[in-house]
Simulated assay, not measured.
Amino acid sequence: MIDVEVAFALPDQQKIMALQVPCGTTVYDAAVMSGIVEHFDGLQLAGTPMGIFGKAVKNPQVEKIMQGQRVEIYRPLTIDPKVARANRAAKAAAKAAAKAQLKA
């Protein structure tokens, strides 16, 4: 048996579950064995992207997990990272313009 963790997070809630699994357990099977789906309504593991310590795993149903690793279950992005960056840049530019206008 090996010690692993399974993690999932929403913006307002997170859960990290420690468990022991047999050697040779896949990333996907560790997520299933953790029972984490019982803590989050609507979480389905089939087809959901997963990774180990922030590195995406191409095929969680084949990739084996090793001692001490943490399976991370990824949720879909709510906004494209490029759009989010553009929004932040526009907000910063507007703030700088407003600050410059106050000084004038």
Results as ranks from 00 to 15, higher is better:
K55Q: 13
L19A: 04
V21N: 02
H39L: 05
Q44T: 15
T48G: 04
A31L: 08
A30Y: 05
N59Y: 13
G51I: 13
N59P: 03
V62M: 08
V37D: 05
N59R: 14
Q61D: 10
I52K: 12
G42T: 11
F40T: 09
Q61C: 06
G51P: 07
P60K: 05
T25Q: 00
A56W: 04
V37R: 07
M17T: 14
S34H: 00
T25C: 00
P22E: 12
G42V: 08
M17S: 10
P60T: 06
P22I: 02
L43I: 02
V32A: 06
Q44M: 15
Q44W: 08
T26L: 01
K58H: 08
Q20L: 02
E63G: 00
C23I: 02
E63L: 00
N59K: 15
D41H: 10
H39S: 11
F53K: 13
A31G: 10
A31Y: 10
V27G: 09
V37I: 13
L43W: 04
G42Q: 07
V21Q: 03
L19M: 04
A46M: 11
V62L: 14
G47R: 11
V32W: 06
L19W: 01
E38P: 00
V37L: 05
Q61K: 13
F53L: 15
K58Q: 09
P22D: 08
I36Y: 01
V21R: 01
A56D: 04
K55W: 03
K55E: 09
I16K: 12
V57D: 06
D29L: 05
F40P: 08
G47A: 12
N59G: 04
A18L: 15
V27C: 05
C23W: 00
V37W: 02
T48I: 07
P49A: 12
P22Q: 07
H39Y: 11
K55H: 11
A31K: 05
N59A: 14
M17E: 09
A18Y: 11
M17H: 14
M17K: 15
P22T: 05
H39M: 06
A18R: 15
V32P: 07
I16Y: 01
D29H: 02
A56N: 12
E63Y: 00
K55L: 09
H39N: 10
M33T: 01
M33I: 01
G35P: 00
G54N: 13
D29G: 01
V62K: 14
G24Y: 10
A31F: 03
K15V: 06
P22G: 06
K58I: 08
C23V: 06
V37F: 02
D41A: 14
S34T: 01
T25D: 00
G24S: 14
A56S: 09
A18D: 11
Y28H: 15
M50C: 08
V62D: 08
G35I: 03
Q20H: 07
K15H: 10
V62Q: 09
V62P: 03
M50L: 12
V21F: 02
G47C: 10
A56Y: 10
A46E: 15
K15F: 05
G24H: 14
E38C: 06
Q44Y: 11
V27A: 09
T26C: 03
T48Q: 11
K15R: 14
V21A: 02
E38K: 13
V57A: 08
K55T: 13
A56C: 04
